[in-house]
Structures are given as C-alpha cells and as structure tokens.
Computed example of a mutant assay.
Amino acid sequence: MPFDAASPPLNVPRWHNLQADEVDQRLSLTLEGRPLITVRLARGDSVEVHLEQLCPERPQQALWAACYWLLSRDPACQRLAWHLPQPVLQAVASGLLLPGAAPGRYVCERTLFWQLPQPWLGESPSGVYPQQMLLTDGKRHPRRAPKPRGEVYRRFDARLGAWVSLRTLEVEQDLERFNRWQNNPRVMHFWQEGGSLAQHREYLDKLAADPHTLTLIGCFDDQPFAYFEAYWAKEDRIAPFYPAGDYDRGIHMLVGEEAHRGPHKVASWLSALVHYLFLDDPRTQRVVAEPRADNAKMIGYMQGQCFHCEKEFDFPHKRAALMIIGRERFFERCELA
C-alpha cells in the first residue's frame, strides 16, 4: 500500500516513491510528487539540519523521512542535530527526536532511530507483552506472546534496490518449497533434515505447536528464497551452554534459492532478520546462533554483520560455534539502508 498524503499514518511506506532533490546544501523530499519537507544542511560535529518547510498534515512522518534519508545514505553518521522553530510533540514522545540543550534544538540518534518499530513492523501488534514466569521441562522462562501470522517485517534495501521482507511460514503454502530446500545436498550437509513431504509436514506442524519457535520465510521483492527459525533461547537446547537471558532470541538459517546466495544478499537478509527480532520485543538484548563449527563461510558472514564467536561447544549431533550479537552493538554498528 503506497505511502501518500491520503494514507493512514502507520501504513508501511513504499520508500522507492520517496524522491530527493539536493542543491546548495538544501534537501527537499517529496512523496508521490507531493512536497514533504525541505531542510538546509550544514556540517559540524554532527549533521546540522535546519528546517525550512514541513508538510503540515503529517509533520511526524516528514521528520522521520528526512532522518531516514540522511541516516540510511551515510552509515557512519551517528546523529542529526535538528533546528526546529517549534517542537513536534509526537517526534519527541516517540524517541525520534531528543530535546537538546538549547531551545529549538533537537537530536536524532542513529541508535534510537533504527529501534523505532514503525514502519518496519507494519501492522504487527505494538507494545510489550506482559511478563509471567513459567516452568517448562525444568526451564524457567517468561510466558511467550501468541505467534504472529502473515508479514512481520518489510524494509527497502537501497544497497540491493529490492524489498526484503519476512512472513510467517504457512504449511499448506510452503511445504513443497521447504521440502525442496531441505533435500538440496548443500542444505542437507548442514541441516541434516532431508526427508519426504510427510516427514516435513510433521516437522513443521511440531514447530507450529511449539510456543518457543517461530518459522519464517524470507523474501526479496516478495519472492521466497529462505527459511528461518527464530526461537527463544531460554527454552531451547542452547540454554545450558551460555547464560541465556529471558528474552534472548536464537536463529537457524537456510537459503534455499541458489540465485540469492552470496555475501551481499546475506548482509541484507541477516541484518533484516536480526533487526526484526530486536524490534519484536525491546527486552531482547541478544540474538544468538549455533552454526556448525566447520561452516566457516556462514561464520564469516555473521562476523561481517558484527556477531562474535563466544566459543565452540558440543551438541550431541554437532560441534557448534556460539555466535552472539548484542542489542547495543547491533544498533551502533548496523548498516541498514
């Protein structure tokens, strides 16, 4: 659904319709040909952004769009110093802008901007699910929120010129695809889950009934290319091997379509997957993974996205590398675009 002057404020924007004109240190943004915001830019300790014109119908989204444009085009930029003639209360209340030391001065911090759940999560439920501790199979953990259905994340990746999105797996829709991917010899080497359609239906039905695991399909421009499992680490087999936090998430990853392999694609979908998990619950402080220790290529890709290898350890079925990325490190170092 396009983001234009008639759309509701929380609709996911189609940012390829966001157009920029930059002349003499002035940046003007338009959406669907309609003026949105004009600012004058100056370089100092941070990027100084002086507001000149603002769309009166949607000032919050206009400010968001300008922050998005300036931060996504320059991954090294850590903050924007805004100069506004009057405050935009919603921008301050949401954390998009922080009040500065001087009147009329506000700061947009990169580490806060990418933690704002909208528009990346679309119409997914917002807010924090209440905490109640449970005991399952001897493991004490929080009660988990009901699993979402449908698309849970969408972002336009300017580096690829493509949409990267995540949706929940639907067995009837995705079983044949999942079966084909799992029986690929390259995938079988690491996943060891080859089998028949009946076996894979049983596998996916079991995960669907498991509250600690969410099965996801990764898409580029709405074409499925990968399968992911996101799990709560506290209830998982990984928990005994490190001090798992109550809201740590873990990931299993499978790229099924050969055309979407390669480091530039991994940088896009891995950052999107981790971004989604950190946005899904603001209490999540770490995302972990346990690839096979001999999967040097994947470990290298993960290190390229700021994961670090904590240690190697032994599962009953494999020697694994414990890969971890913390929330603070991700939002300080992420190169989302």
Rank of each mutant, 00 (worst) to 15 (best):
H50S: 15
L51S: 01
E52A: 06
E52C: 08
Q53C: 13
L54A: 04
L54P: 04
C55G: 11
P56D: 01
P56K: 10
P56T: 06
R58K: 14
P59E: 12
P59Y: 09
Q61L: 12
L63K: 04
L63A: 00
L63C: 00
L63Q: 05
W64M: 09
W64K: 09
A65E: 10
A66Q: 03
C67D: 02
Y68T: 00
Y68Q: 04
Y68M: 00
Y68F: 04
S72V: 14
R73E: 14
R73F: 06
D74I: 03
A76M: 12
A76S: 15
C77L: 15
C77F: 11
Q78C: 11
R79Y: 07
W82D: 04
H83R: 14
H83Q: 15
H83E: 12
L84K: 00
L84P: 08
L84A: 05
P85W: 07
P85K: 09
P85T: 11
Q86C: 08
Q86E: 12
Q86H: 10
P87A: 02
P87Y: 09
V88C: 15
V88K: 08
L89K: 12
Q90M: 07
Q90Y: 06
V92R: 00
V92F: 03
A93V: 10
S94H: 09
G95I: 02
L96E: 06
L98H: 11
L98G: 08
A101K: 13
A101H: 14
P103N: 11
P103E: 09
G104P: 12
G104F: 13
G104M: 10
R105F: 03
R105P: 04
Y106G: 06
V107C: 07
C108S: 03
E109N: 14
E109K: 13
R110P: 06
R110V: 09
T111R: 08
F113T: 01
F113L: 02
F113H: 08
W114D: 03
W114H: 00
Q115I: 02
P117C: 04
Q118A: 09
Q118G: 01
P119M: 01
P119G: 02
P119D: 10
P119V: 01
W120T: 01
W120V: 02
W120E: 10
W120I: 02
L121P: 07
G122T: 05
G122F: 03
E123G: 12
E123M: 09
E123K: 07
P125G: 05
P125C: 03
G127Y: 02
V128E: 05
Y129L: 03
P130Q: 01
P130F: 00
Q131F: 03
Q131A: 02
M133R: 14
L134N: 12
L134I: 12
L134F: 05
L135Q: 15
D137P: 10
G138D: 10
G138V: 09
K139N: 08
K139A: 11
R140E: 15
R140W: 15
R140G: 12
H141L: 15
P142H: 06
P142D: 03
P142Y: 03
P142G: 06
R144T: 09
